[in-house]
């Protein structure tokens, strides 16, 4: 039988003493419930967005590197164009 330990029940049963309350925690033997589902879900979503964000940053850096090389090439072209007699 499940004992109701809520405050409402305690008010209806004034005979209960402090010793009636649970005084220890019992582990479920053989169970696999060691992780909170909420924590696992948050971790999963954090990992998903982190992977996507890292990939987008890498892509942006790759594009920035190409832009720098294009700038270098354009500068080289400009230098040669200036040297060239009109």
């Amino acid at each position: 039988m499940i004992q109701d330990t809520s405050s409402g029940a305690a008010t209806q049963n004034p005979q209960r003493t402090p010793d009636d309350r649970s005084t220890s925690f019992q582990a479920v033997e053989g169970g696999g419930e060691t992780r909170s589902g909420t924590a696992l879900m948050v971790e999963a979503y954090a990992v998903i967005w982190t992977i996507l964000l890292v990939y987008l940053v890498l892509l942006w850096r790759k594009q920035a590197s190409i832009n720098r090389r294009i700038d270098g090439l354009e500068a080289a072209i400009d230098r040669v164009a200036k040297k060239k007699p009109q």
């Binding site: 696999g32 696992l40 998903i48 992977i51 996507l52």
Partner: peptide, 25 residues
């Protein structure tokens, strides 16, 4: 190829996090 690795990494990390609760491993 890059897309397959990026989304594969998501699958291989989100799946085990679900399995930890659903399968216990």
């Amino acid at each position: 190829g890059e897309l397959a690795v990026v989304f594969g990494a998501i699958v291989l990390t989100s799946g085990p996090l679900w399995a930890a609760k659903a399968w216990g491993v």
